[in-house]
Design a binder for these strands. Structure first.
Lengths: 234, 234
DNA sequence: ATTGATAATTTAACACTGTATATTTACATT
DNA sequence: AATGTAAATATACAGTGTTAAATTATCAAT
């Protein structure tokens, strides 16, 4: 047996490092993250961090996973405030929650979808469980619509005949859903993400409608594209 | 007259700095950009760069403007290969050109829409002319559709009653177009940008459809949302 | 209780980065 | 030729991520 007592101390500082990282990100932004600054705040030496995270990228990956988890939590919470059978309300609530979370936590959002740090590239496999849980909210709603015969796939992408390994990997996290639901969820995510992304990066000029109005219109257009008002047997 | 001979040398080095920056960005990525590395390549001292660009951010801004210009050129070129009256073909060509350019120049794309460097924030006013020229391609096509009575605004965002200063500023670059066209162009841009953004950041899992198929389906859905098949008098 | 292994942490150093200041070089105008 | 200024440099500062070696603390086994 190799010293089980020490391992509890271990995680204390590990948590403190993450907490301090978030504090810095909230004030100075994700791109300004500095291991040395975190160490200064914790009154430890900078290389001490290397005992808990092999390098800066590993710390960033942990922060990204926490961000995805926060985003997913936020969307799940929004979904749970709805009447379980009201698909339109479910889509509206989670869709709105996506933008609300991004506006409330822009640094977390940039951490996930921007290029947060020089030379950093997120390890897809490590992040996938958290990312899948986040997209899972939307997937579940679309799947519910499909089962209710209310999914209109007339304008959805045409499916390939074979499943990808990625599809199999995701089944593990989002549940065994119909492939069609996943692809529709992707398309919806892309539409909503685009507006939020441009809004947060200040790339979208606001001519007449506010960013909120643009987003709500897009959300309505999404409903109109993919949701039938009445059940259609399949 | 203040030394015309020197000024040619002046701009030579200014151009050389940009060119070397692009070379570095193409190989090591935008986030890894280093003034000192550029200086080393040009066999000049690092502070020499400060005679041409006040700081690193100014250099990045120049690169962003060049990126926007390249994107706009690419879209204009794609548009010009189309029959001028075929609105569907025009939208298809420029829409495809947007993703093609992003895939061909991912670093340029990240420079514009990502968070390229720690603490950098693009100066909106300086970038606007180039950004406006890029979005201008789409705006012109939508405006053409509107004039032809083929724009369906049933699912477009509702317009505010007043123009923003930003709208006035953009008129200068994109021409005096109808406000409705600008807002529809925004919505379309958002939809297409979202998919490209997720594809490039490897955030979009590919279950069944390829990224290209997802994008083409979205492009078709965009046509179906905003374009009428037949002229409707307004 | 002492010993010895090992986990945890620090110090020192390396190779970088952007940037400010002061200084030198080079050249067009006088 | 002398001068003023533009252009480039050398130097230095404060910061970064990271590595290697040295040190301290802690606990299991003796």
């Amino acid at each position: 047996m190799v010293r089980p007592t020490k391992q509890t101390q271990h995680s204390d500082l590990k948590v403190a490092i993450i907490a301090t990282a978030w504090a810095h990100i909230s004030t100075t932004g994700a791109a300004m993250l500095s291991l040395r600054a975190i160490a200064r705040d914790l009154q430890i030496s900078a290389p001490a961090i290397y005992h808990y995270y092999p390098d800066r990228d590993a710390l960033v990956t942990a922060l990204i996973i926490e961000s995805y988890t926060s985003l997913a939590d936020h969307q799940f919470h929004a979904r749970d405030t709805c009447n379980d059978g009201d698909i339109v309300a479910l889509l509206q609530a989670t869709g709105t929650a996506y933008r609300d979370w991004a506006l409330a936590h822009p640094q977390h959002y940039q951490l996930i979808f921007g290029t947060p740090l020089p030379g950093y590239h997120a390890p897809v496999a490590a992040v996938r469980p958290a990312a899948a849980r986040s997209l899972g909210v939307l997937i579940q709603i679309i799947e519910q619509a499909r089962r209710a015969g209310r999914l209109n796939v007339a304008h959805a992408p045409i499916l390939a005949t074979t499943h990808t390994p990625e599809f199999v990997a995701w089944q593990q996290y989002t549940g065994a859903h119909h492939l069609q639901s996943l692809v529709v969820a992707q398309a919806i995510w892309g539409r909503l993400h685009g507006l939020v992304s441009l809004e947060l990066s200040c790339s979208m000029p606001l001519f007449a409608a506010t960013a909120e109005a643009l987003y709500n219109a897009e959300l309505a257009a999404v409903r109109w594209t993919y949701l039938r008002a009445e059940r259609v047997e399949i």
